[in-house]
């Protein structure tokens, strides 16, 4: 059945204007439909969607803590199995980059290793936005955050590279891992659909712009996420059963745009334009990724 015209995520939530997370959520739920149980790690999404006594969720939803969404979901999977109701229910987890790549990584890895039939979606806004823009392992190289401050002694912002979480999850050899971008909606929807059709652990890493933390105009949310993929910084791909040799790049930009086009409209990268060498470094990193994977795809 097609539930695209139904809204399983109600308005009235308290996300900042222009936040990408609810766009991601509404589309995941339109694809997964009403027979879905949602598990949420602590984070912006959990906070802005459940201001007690109200909730935006029109599906069963549970939040327990920050680092254990995958474990909580594992318990639900086991319980449904135990009562013979496993087959017709989707279990979908939403975790931010903090709740997934950092503090929740252990429980996510455990969930994947144990083979639970769960779709885990990391909405990646590339910092701890809920507590006010602190760096995470998923914050990109060169980004300003409130804990990678930029000043004369530290002109770069974040000095480390972004943790390649989707590749790490693919290395778990789980049946399906993909990156996704709601700005490329048909691809995004197809990936959710495909993931839900596969039994076992699935992981989707979706970019999720944060207008507050990325420092761009709220109206530019989709545009900037689109640029992330058009510049090749956030490539869209999928890997099945951990087979990197068969990586499938699902969107091939005709000509990748220079990374500056993505970095320029975002305040968090403003200082980089005083460090042209660093921008070159980012471009080099992107080019290397494509050189490595483009031919395989």
């Amino acid at each position: 059945m097609n539930y695209e015209d139904m809204e399983f995520f109600a308005p009235g939530h308290r996300a900042c204007a222009g936040c990408a997370a609810p766009i991601i959520v509404k589309w995941v739920l339109k694809i997964s439909g009403p027979k879905t149980i949602v598990v949420n790690a602590t984070g912006c999404l959990e906070v802005f969607s459940t201001p007690y006594p109200h909730t935006s969720w029109r599906l069963p939803w549970i939040h327990t803590a920050f680092e254990n969404a995958a474990a909580t979901a594992s318990g639900i999977d086991a319980a449904l199995k135990a009562i013979g109701k496993r087959d017709d229910v989707n279990i979908v987890v939403f975790g931010g980059d903090g709740g997934t790549s950092d503090i929740g990584f252990q429980s996510l890895s455990g969930m994947a290793e144990r083979g639970h039939n769960i779709l885990y979606i990391m909405y990646d806004n590339e910092a701890y936005m809920n507590t006010g823009i602190q760096r995470s392992s998923s914050t990109p190289f060169g980004a300003w955050t409130s804990t990678t401050q930029v000043g004369p002694s530290r002109p770069l912002g974040k000095e480390e590279f972004k943790k390649p979480i989707a590749e790490i999850m693919a290395a778990h050899k789980i049946p399906y891992v993909a990156t996704a971008n709601p700005a490329f909606l048909p691809d995004f929807k197809a990936k959710i659909q495909k993931a839900l059709s596969i039994k076992g652990p699935k992981f989707i890493h979706t970019i999720s712009s944060c207008t507050t933390g990325w420092r761009h105009d709220p109206s530019k949310t989709i545009e900037i996420m689109r640029l992330a993929t058009e510049t090749g910084i956030f490539p869209l791909w999928e890997i099945e059963n951990g087979d990197f040799s068969k990586i499938k790049i699902t969107y091939m930009p005709k000509q990748r745009k220079p990374v500056e086009e993505y970095l320029k409209p975002q305040g968090r990268f403003r200082h980089l334009f005083n460090e042209p060498e660093k921008i070159k470094e980012i471009q080099k990193m992107v080019d290397e990724w494509w050189a490595k994977f483009e031919t395989k795809s």
């Binding site: 149980i37 598990v39 549970i62 327990t64 803590a65 680092e67 254990n68 995958a70 474990a71 909580t72 979901a73 594992s74 318990g75 639900i76 999977d77 086991a78 319980a79 449904l80 135990a82 009562i83 252990q106 429980s107 455990g110």
Partner: peptide, 13 residues
């Protein structure tokens, strides 16, 4: 930590 988290998931089900 995950043991009790999963137990909550199960009990909530």
């Amino acid at each position: 930590h995950s043991a009790l988290s999963a137990a909550i998931g199960a009990a909530a089900t």
